[in-house]
Design a binder for these strands. Structure first.
Lengths: 163, 163
DNA sequence: ACAGTCTAGTTTCTGCATCAACCGTTTGCC
DNA sequence: GGCAAACGGTTGATGCAGAAACTAGACTGT
């Protein structure tokens, strides 16, 4: 456990840049969404995952699986969103422990209103400045990291759906 | 403001991978640091920034500038860390509004104990699997993002210091 | 059929992050 | 000199995230 192999200078710069991008971009997305659409990033993520799926309804555990959230977090988040009318809880008949989360028309409207600006930001700071090769390289590196973290990589989107 | 240019499928995969790495790696670092060293990632970041600097002491605003944190966040964080003996507050004589934050021996010890495992994780999931060219490419992309976010890129480390 | 275990989801507790308001100090400017 | 504005930092209110304990329903083997 001794003989630590530190990061080289180049690696340190890369690492700190990563940390900075991570923090700043997340903060920025949060602020923009909040200011322009009254949504938190967490709200947005839930809405995206519901919009993604054919019938716009998921079991709690499926949603939690996609988001990789603590279940307590999801529980509370859904409760708040339901209170605001963005989603609806529906009890599950085949498994009486379970619960569905349905996207409401208001929820759909909210994400449709928020998505364009959100995507615009992402394009602006990232993809519009990247070549396709760079995108491919990034994806490869990220997916490698996810594997090493023993997390399953995100599901490949089959069609073109919301951000 | 109409005619939204959505993300392509490849871009979506890259983007979601990015989000996943972002969330998962941060969570992992936090849990590991907490479990093995009783430090939060925020604690660690403060300690790193203090260790980085020659005299191991910074003005609050300098520290806040490096971390890019809300000042209220920094204020509370430092208060908590001072209560645990990891840092020490010292009043500033030339500017009576100001305050210094000094790294204590205990704080130094704490980060020296935590750093090896932390760096090991980062190496394991990222840099050990990256070629130097990939590191360089990543850095370039990240720094581009930071510029587009109108945030100044992280200071290049002049010497080899802690993670 | 029933005991043990597992799964789905909620709740409680605690700590942290953000926003806005605030206080004392310094600075710029006339 | 004196006043307004900016700066450095703290505080209060509020809302969210994480860990663990908890409830209730479902599955397993015998």
């Amino acid at each position: 456990m001794d003989e630590v192999k530190w990061l080289s200078n180049d690696e340190q710069v890369a690492w700190r840049s990563w940390l900075a991008v991570n923090a700043q971009l997340t903060a920025r997305m949060n602020r923009d969404l909040q200011a322009k659409n009254g949504l938190s990033l967490a709200d947005y993520d839930v809405l995206v995952n519901l919009t993604d799926v054919p019938d716009r309804s998921l079991r709690m555990y499926e949603l939690g699986d996609k988001l990789q959230w603590e279940k307590s977090r999801l529980s509370r988040q859904v409760m708040r969103m339901a209170a605001r009318g963005l989603v609806e809880r529906r009890e599950c008949l085949d498994d009486r422990r379970g619960a569905y989360v349905d996207l409401t028309p208001a929820g759909l409207e909210a994400i449709q209103a928020a998505a364009p600006e959100h995507v615009k930001l992402i394009r602006q700071v990232m993809f519009d400045a990247f070549t396709p090769e760079e995108v491919a390289a990034l994806t490869k590196l990220y997916q490698g990291v996810l594997e090493r973290l023993e997390v399953k990589p995100p599901t490949v989107t089959p069609d073109g759906s919301v951000a």
